[in-house]
Design a protein around this nucleic acid. Structure first.
Length: 467
RNA sequence: UCCCCUGUAGCUCAGUCGGUAGAGCGGGUGGCUGUUAACCACUAGGUCGUUGGUUCGAGUCCAACCGGGGGAGCCA
């Protein structure tokens, strides 16, 4: 029996009826086997879709009984036979095997994945095998759909994909704990208790893993007009929650000749495109999430697509919260950040849909955001969605040299470190805007998964970097 | 980092008032002519997270530590 990339049929295609009535070859991993005296059913999954292909070995099958015996849950195998219409109720086609062999066995009493529901906590401990489960296969395919939809969306709008650096020598935003990158012999230095001499380090100065590609994206936006980054991002914060990872993927578009309104417009269209892509291109997986992970998910997403994105200012949001008569744990007041309970009230009760909040007090936002004429708010925008809260955060950037210098000073940052960032305002400055979207938070939202550790293949969190 | 919960069979859990451990699923064996969370019968399987303490006696009570989960803060 000879298999090759060209001649084997992927199960997603076989189930769609490709090769019906013909002899085809498939391969994959056994999900389950059921047998009675004269007929054996093997469910084969190759990860190309949620569903498995049912393979039939009946009394006429030339496949030896001891070979069938080896087709246990988890085993890899290949099979050849006629793709036929299935008399069974749960599938339209099945493979009547004429040849089959196990490639790699999986001992049933030792294989960690049983044919039953496992807790996500347990599966996290076997992340090398959890990809073979329904949920994690679906997550992997959804990530792929959303990743490709992201590239297509920005390409459609004339953006260029930008590879921003992973290693940075400056604490970019002064926000977020950084992972330090060094080649200094830390063990020796710790024993010697000497002062660190960074001139001997790889970059001859302290270096870190990036917490954002935004400042670099601004550079290229001020040359190519529209760029976006989609890369790994690192935060060394000691937070143990269902929404934080030490290593995650972030999408950051940046647009020159674009004010906050244009920014909001692109953000809204992008979010809509992502949801449409998930529903249309990953419909089988999305139905699984709706049925098994978060009942009502599809309705919520359809509702969001049908909703207008309500635009209010931070001031209006605070006033609405104060008028609500609701008992909040944190009393809403000017100058305080919106708590998740506040976001939930706005999106789930007051407006029953997505809400875009703009013009926050400058004190609670980053130094690079453009100051409004009132002198106290900045041109920031947060896109809030029901259930999740903030999914996108962005702003128009300060393009006035003097104002930006002042904001750097006020933030307690070093102007010298930002000389190149300031140069963008010295030479050919232009109104520009951008936003950021955490990819795993998006996947968590669209899948309904509770824990962010279960929407990335290999989660890195505090005290945890297994696999 | 703070608060709360939790750790018992391969997995998910029960275990009363402190008296030497139980179920379902999974595994194994046998049965079953089309099953699909297959079904039926039988069967094996335990250092109760670790260390120390209280007690005649600890899965159970106490302390510390370790692991896991949830919430808060911060954020994406």
């Amino acid at each position: 029996m000879q298999f090759s990339f060209e001649t084997t049929v992927r199960i997603v295609d076989a189930l769609a009826g490709k090769g019906l009535g013909e002899e085809i070859a498939v391969h994959g991993w056994v999900r389950t086997r059921r047998s009675s005296k004269s007929v054996t059913f093997v469910e084969l999954n190759d990860g190309s879709c949620m569903s498995s292909l049912q393979i039939i070995f009946d009394a006429d099958s030339p496949v030896a009984a001891d070979e069938l015996e080896r087709m246990q849950t988890g085993a890899s195998m290949e099979a050849r036979g006629t793709l036929s219409e299935s008399p069974g109720g749960r599938q339209s086609v099945e493979l009547r095997a004429t040849e089959a062999r196990v490639i790699g066995e999986a001992s049933a009493d030792r294989y960690p994945l049983q044919k039953k529901r496992h807790s996500f906590e347990y599966l996290r401990e076997i992340a090398h095998l959890r990809a073979r489960t329904n949920t994690f296969g679906a997550i992997a395919r959804l990530r792929n759909t959303l990743s490709m939809a992201t590239h297509r969306f920005f390409q459609d709008y004339g953006f260029y994909s930008l590879h921003s650096p992973i290693i940075t020598a400056s604490d970019a935003e002064g926000a977020g704990e950084l992972f330090q990158v060094t080649t200094l012999p830390l063990d020796e230095l710790a024993a010697a208790e000497t002062q660190l001499d960074y001139s001997r380090d790889f970059f001859a100065k302290p270096a870190y893993l990036t917490v954002s590609g935004q400042l670099n994206a601004e550079i290229y936006a001020c040359a190519l007009e529209r760029v976006y980054t989609f890369g790994p991002t690192f935060r060394a914060e000691n937070s143990n929650t269902t929404r934080h990872l030490a290593e995650f993927w972030m999408i950051e578009p940046e647009m020159a000749f674009c004010d906050l309104d244009g920014n909001i417009e692109i953000a809204e269209r992008y979010l809509r495109r992502l949801i449409e892509a998930a529903l249309r291109e990953s419909s089988e997986d999305m139905q699984f999430f709706d049925k098994r992970i978060r009942p009502g998910l599809l309705n919520e997403l359809e509702h969001l697509l049908a909703s207008d994105f309500t635009r209010i200012t931070y001031r209006e949001a605070i006033e609405a919260l104060q008028r609500s008569g609701k008992e909040f744990e944190f009393t809403p007041s000017w100058g305080a950040d919106l708590q998740s309970e506040h976001e939930r009230y706005l999106t789930e009760e007051l407006y029953n849909g997505p809400v875009i909040v703009t013009d926050y007090p400058k004190e609670i936002k980053a130094f690079y955001m453009k100051l409004n004429p009132d002198g106290e708010t900045v041109r920031a925008m947060d896109v809030l969605v029901p259930y999740l809260g903030e999914i996108i955060g962005g702003s128009q950037r300060e393009d006035d040299l003097e104002l930006l210098k002042r904001r750097i000073d006020e933030a307690g940052l070093d102007r010298e470190a930002y000389w190149w960032y300031l140069d963008l305002r010295r030479f050919g400055t232009v109104p520009h805007s951008g936003f950021g979207l955490g990819f795993e938070r998006l996947v968590r939202y669209l899948s309904g998964m509770q824990n962010i550790r279960d929407v990335i293949p290999f989660p890195r969190t505090v005290r945890s970097a297994e696999f």
